[in-house]
């Protein structure tokens, strides 16, 4: 692995659930002891079902969700920040360096602002430009990079299709010149042709602007095509992280295998049902003891309900959190 741009060590995000007079109040462990390195210049995928904590993890790294434990560092060569204690000027500087692209391009853009004003807003809020001319120049530069028609800058968002709106969203995220971008389900709401177009755009922007992406998605086929590394999240914990090709060629955690086999295949004759998961993801307010996946795991044993497996080096460059991954590898 190259040097890490973002490095997390047993990072936790816990939300208190009400208060108790005596004893410890219950907490919702949205993210529990997550340790990953996001290599500089990588397209890092984060997958999992709804409720697994994907968005919370992305937001915690951006300091938009409260970090309740563990360590998190951001280091891009110019600055080196401890994300858990970041405040005031440094936090303001970090906001410039780390940005977010949202899922729904219809909800993310104010209908009352022109496209130019939407893209310019981060520059103005952060006071990064001094004159209107300077702002305009920056806006036009990034709009051109995002393949937006410059004639459209004076229009309002309602005049645009989903794909064009997502380009506007991307331009707004990139206008401050960030090094790290969290793309949270950024293509989930788009039709497949537009999805392909936006994915290609993100990849080319990554190369041109030397960006590092945390790409959050529930769609494994998309992740397989664009990401260099993939981390699989289940109920707030990482169950497996590996370079994309390794993960898809040799998934080691039973949950990863179940996720892969649930993707509907384009081949009508291929009806894999081998690893179908029963039931649904349990509530994070009351997660199962031991391995959090053991209640749905097709190969769980007694030990899984008692001992929590830790994310450990498996083989190659893969890390997996399962007691029995070696025994359960398909022949």
């Amino acid at each position: 692995m190259n040097t890490a741009l973002v490095s997390l060590d047993t990072l936790s995000v816990h939300y208190p659930l009400g208060r108790r007079l005596i004893g410890k109040a219950p907490v919702l462990k949205a993210i529990d002891r997550v340790s990953i390195d996001i290599p500089k210049g990588s397209f890092f995928g984060l997958v999992g079902e709804s409720g697994s904590g994907k968005t919370t993890l992305g937001r915690a790294i951006l300091r938009a969700a409260p970090i309740s434990g563990g360590a998190a560092r951001y280091s891009d060569g110019e600055v080196d920040y401890d994300l858990t204690t970041l405040a005031k000027d440094n936090l303001r500087d970090y906001r410039k360096r780390a940005q977010l692209i949202f899922q729904d391009p219809y909800a993310a853009l104010s209908p009352r602002m022109t496209v130019r004003d939407i893209i310019a807003e981060p520059l103005e809020v952060m006071g990064l430009t001094r004159t209107r001319e300077e702002t305009d120049t920056r806006v036009r530069e990034i709009a051109a990079k995002c393949r937006l028609n410059l004639e459209h800058l004076r229009r309002f968002p309602h005049a645009f299709s989903g794909g064009q709106r997502q380009r506007i969203s991307i331009a707004r995220a990139l206008v401050t010149g960030p090094k790290f971008v969290v793309a949270d389900e950024s293509v989930a709401a788009l039709d497949v042709s537009i999805q392909a177009d936006i994915l290609n755009l993100l990849k080319s922007l990554q190369r041109d602007l030397d960006l590092t992406f945390l790409f959050i998605s529930h769609d494994l086929s998309v992740v397989a095509h664009v990401c260099d590394y993939v981390a699989v999240l289940y109920l707030g914990s990482i169950v497996e992280v590996a370079p994309t090709r390794e993960l898809f060629a040799r998934p080691k955690h039973p949950y990863t295998r179940a996720l892969l086999s649930a993707i509907p295949s384009l081949d009508p004759d291929d009806t894999r049902k081998t690893q179908r998961l029963e039931g649904e993801i349990p509530s994070p307010a009351n997660p199962p003891a031991g391995c959090r996946f053991h209640t749905r795991c097709p190969v769980a044993q007694d030990r899984c309900g008692a001992d929590t497996p830790i994310l450990d080096h498996a083989d190659g460059n893969a890390h997996v959190a399962c007691h029995f991954w070696r025994e359960n590898l398909p022949g």
Binding site: S161, S193, A196, N200, A224, H225, T244, F248, L260, S265
Partner: peptide, 20 residues
């Protein structure tokens, strides 16, 4: 052609040209 397929990770994703 625009669909990401799991059986061929190297295939480029080719969008349908233009907008609807």
């Amino acid at each position: 052609n625009a669909l990401p397929r799991l059986d061929d990770l190297d295939a480029p994703l080719v969008p349908v040209a233009g907008d609807i």
